[in-house]
Write a protein that binds this DNA or RNA. Structure first.
Lengths: 193, 193
DNA sequence: AAAAAGCATTGACTTTGGTCAATGCTTGAG
DNA sequence: CTCAAGCATTGACCAAAGTCAATGCTTTTT
């Protein structure tokens, strides 16, 4: 239990056995069926979720009812509505499972206590969020500066697993496109080979 | 000296006088003239810069020589090429001054020593980067899910100072648009009032 | 096994943003 | 003070992405 989470933690900040045992007290396992919600808009986000197994997405819904995916999380990734989590304001994102999934949840209380009591947890969190920041900055840069074709190639190069496992119309949504447009871009790329 | 930086720090993590004095040893002041570079692509980014006064931008340049602004930093904000800073790989962004500016630099060595020696620094950094992450996520969400008009209104509502102080074609670049397009959007908004 | 739902693709057409060129205004350097 | 450069705006035209509708697969559900 928590194997993948602890492995991820140790790869960033080395823990002793006692520390591992200590942390386990603050973790909660959770299983989700495909299509099940982990978080719904207007709920208050009470956890950070680490994906042990499976796949999730975070998305917002606009006035026209259209979904816009802002993040995927596969094995080894973390997902949450951080703003809601930290401020206790209602969430602006929905999070649900794209496949049957196994998660490790860190509740808000657990998060705060761990920050207090285990400096290594703060270090782990800092490293995680810094990595997430850099990854998102790259995504943003690619959006404002690369042509669509590049962006799609980039995405498949960087996250081949996501492109394989996730339906194409969700990839389109993640890129801010209509499914038809992505389909046409793929055709164009295929034609060039 | 360092007044605004220390004030910002204290607002997030309260420091004693001794701690303040201690931190000052790790800081370097720097003045930049308008248009001067703080960092050029292919350099290795050796610092995090806190803006005491003035305005800067970070941008990338594409194959066609076009600039794409990925961040502005006014008073109280922090700017850097974090990826380059943390990995010592060549920077992918340029950073220069939009106005005469006064900065506080934290070198890589200083950053690492402060993380080691002063737990409050790690806390400060964690809070900063978390805030930056959330802000960027909002920007990203707005890009993939809102129509242009909304995005511009949002930007002026959220960062009126930036829109006032920065030339319009740079705002366009920040939004991933041509200057002409932004001009037309502004006209459209103005017409509705 | 049959029916239904979800998905990717394609075509025709519309809308939106980009490109190119010109104008007039403001700012800054010499 | 003058001239050049930078900037915002507009118009005419072009290219790219969105919309709507239809088709044929595949996957789920019953």
């Amino acid at each position: 239990m928590y194997k993948s989470f602890l492995q991820n933690f140790n790869s960033k900040v080395r823990l002793t056995e006692e520390e591992e045992a200590f942390i386990k007290n603050y973790l909660t396992p959770k299983k989700l069926r495909k299509k099940q919600y982990l978080l719904q808009e207007t709920d208050i986000c009470k956890f950070i979720a680490f994906v042990e197994k499976g796949a999730l997405r975070a998305y917002s819904v606009d006035e026209n009812g259209k979904e816009h995916i802002i993040q995927f999380a596969l094995e080894g990734w973390t997902i949450s509505d951080l703003y809601s989590f930290l401020t206790s304001e209602p969430a602006t994102y929905n999070i649900d499972a794209l496949e049957d999934s196994e998660l490790v949840l860190i509740s808000k209380a657990a998060h705060e206590e761990l920050l207090q009591k285990l400096p290594k947890y703060e270090t782990y969190f800092r490293i995680q969020i810094t990595g997430a920041y850099i990854a998102m900055q790259k995504r943003l840069t690619s959006i404002i500066s690369s042509p669509l074709e590049e962006r799609y190639k980039n995405l498949t190069a960087l996250y081949p697993t996501i492109v394989e496992r996730v339906p194409q119309h969700m990839i389109a949504s993640y890129m801010g496109l209509q499914p038809e447009t992505l389909s046409r871009i793929r055709r164009k790329i295929a034609a060039k080979k």
